[in-house]
């Protein structure tokens, strides 16, 4: 796993959510952003954790996303600017997703790993696994 490039002020679990928040900011911006700009936009967002991120944490997460080939970066002056990489896999997945949107039958031929979970299902899962296994899934944010 790539999370070895960690930073200590972010709990390990929260990283997925922070990555998602940063990706959202970059998608919405629609242009390459510097870590500082990302941090400003994050601060303006509603996410409580994301608002308190330090500059170095933002840089770390952006670097990680770049290593994962999720983000492209180019050097502008002394720092890097980051933009979502319109990678083939991502595009294809989005195309597939758009296609699937329309029809229940297309959904039916794909086997999802996990079906949708209702609130009572989630509660039941916690009860089933609660005793010895800790909390199922942990909190993503």
């Amino acid at each position: 796993m790539l999370s070895a490039v960690g930073s200590s002020d972010v709990p390990r679990r929260a990283r997925g959510a922070l990555e998602a928040a940063i990706m959202d900011v970059l998608w919405q911006a629609g242009r390459p952003l510097s870590p500082g700009q990302v941090r400003e936009l994050l601060a303006a967002s509603g996410d409580a954790t994301a608002r308190q991120l330090s500059y170095s944490t933002v840089v770390t997460i952006l670097t990680r996303l770049h290593v994962k080939k999720v983000l492209a970066r180019k050097r502008v002056g002394r720092s890097f600017h980051y933009a979502p990489l319109a990678d083939e896999a991502g595009l294809e997945a989005r195309r597939l997703t758009a296609l699937l949107d329309g029809s229940a039958d297309r959904e039916a031929v794909l086997s999802r790993f996990v079906a949708d979970l209702s609130d009572s299902d989630e509660e039941l899962l916690r009860r089933l696994l609660g005793s010895a296994g800790g909390r199922p899934g942990g909190d993503a944010r």
Binding site: D116, E122, L129
Partner: peptide
Amino acid sequence: AETIARAAVAAKHGG
């Protein structure tokens, strides 16, 4: 079992 539970919870809350 734990993996399925974890994945289902992540899928539900992970947007």
